[in-house]
Design a protein around this nucleic acid. Structure first.
Lengths: 212, 212
DNA sequence: GCTGAAATACGTTTTTATACGTAGCGGTTT
DNA sequence: AAACCGCTACGTATAAAAACGTATTTCAGC
């Protein structure tokens, strides 16, 4: 049996190094590559081949969801395991759409990671138990992800909202009418299925758009 | 030279295991204990002795700041190194007050961790470079931390605010007058030095009060 | 018994946010 | 050419939040 080649993408260097060390002790793991964000990972994939990618979802530059989609274009055979801090249903759905076949939480044990890797390598899929519970608790949502269909302008305004600027301040900063920013904010609430500012901020953080 | 005993407290099992593995490869590191939150860590300290504690700040049950204070009561000789995801000035100040002598970010390298451990063990203090930069960028704040002086009621209401409830809804839920909740919210903005709801939510997450 | 902090509650005012509507302009896709 | 989408902008209305103030009760610590 060939050794399994792994590509780790995570913006926390210490986490990455630790995971690499743990994996390198397994006999059936071969080369382990690292990247600190989605962009670096997908660039790296152009000149390297990996069997399995362990992708953090919350990353700067390019998040795990975008990275997974791109990775499967660059390297169709690659198996993707998502690694998230949060047990969020939308994440799960987005990652499935993006082509992931495994989903782990950062507070799962290394044993779970091992299981996920061997399962996925053998064309099975693996979902962490906590996530399964979470999905079963909540009834199925109508559709997939939300994070992708925000426009650039909306994302820009969303970030300013999260930083505590009022619509007036945002309008001034971006040279827009206050009423325009009002409208963008309204659309943001709709698209993110948020009820108010607090929900909006949580959404932004959960989706890795705001690095705090 | 005696080997250094380490106590790791972090709620992400995978991170903990990785860090433990990295540390266990160092010749001068002896026993490594683990805890998944501040409570478990301080309980463990009653029957164990450690030279250095690596404390995550954002933890459920009991955060790193509280844990550090308590740890130094239980085991006055212990050296504390804080480990945070965020490069936040208030964190730094709170941890210094709580008796920490090292401060690392989770995206620092393992080399930095090694340096921090040896420095701290030799009665020096260690601060990650990113944090130093961050502190130098911003002028010194008047005083120390903020997280501790929230009352139970305030914390309760803060969490409900972050979940997206309006003052009216919170009042109903807690059987209070809407005006009372108004007042609590006002005090929360004051105490956390926030300008509005968005700032409040960020504060809550940064201080580990809200697990998302 | 006094003091202070926390929790409760109310009044008033201004500023923001939320919610519903409409609509023109510039670009891309079909 | 028509259809669609993103961005812009406005009108109106209500709800909520923010910014001042005051005041009572209760409970812990001195």
């Amino acid at each position: 049996m060939n050794k399994i080649t792994i590509y780790i993408a995570d913006d926390h260097s210490l986490f990455r190094e630790g995971l690499k060390m743990l994996l390198s002790n397994l006999a059936y793991i071969g080369e382990i590559y690292e990247a600190e964000n989605g962009r670096q990972f997908t660039e790296g994939l152009k000149s390297r081949v990996a069997d399995i990618a362990l992708l953090d979802i919350e990353m700067p530059e390019m998040n795990g969801i975008e990275a997974a989609k791109l990775a499967r274009k660059i390297c169709p055979g690659i198996k993707i395991i998502a690694l998230s801090m949060y047990s969020d249903e939308n994440y799960y759905l987005s990652m499935i759409e993006a082509g992931a076949c495994g989903f782990l939480l950062k507070n799962s044990s290394f044993q779970e990671v091992e299981k996920a890797i061997t399962d996925v390598y053998n064309d099975k899929s693996y979902i962490s138990i906590e996530i399964l519970n979470n999905i079963l608790k909540h009834p199925a949502k109508t559709s997939g992800s939300l994070i992708e269909d925000l426009s650039e302008r909306e994302t820009e305004i969303l970030l300013l909202i999260c930083k505590g600027f009022t619509n007036n301040e945002i309008a001034e900063k971006l040279n827009l009418s206050k009423r325009t920013v009002d409208k963008h904010r309204e659309n943001l609430l709709l698209k993110t299925q948020s009820k108010n500012t607090a929900n909006l901020v949580i959404f932004t953080i959960k989706n890795g758009l705001l690095k705090i």
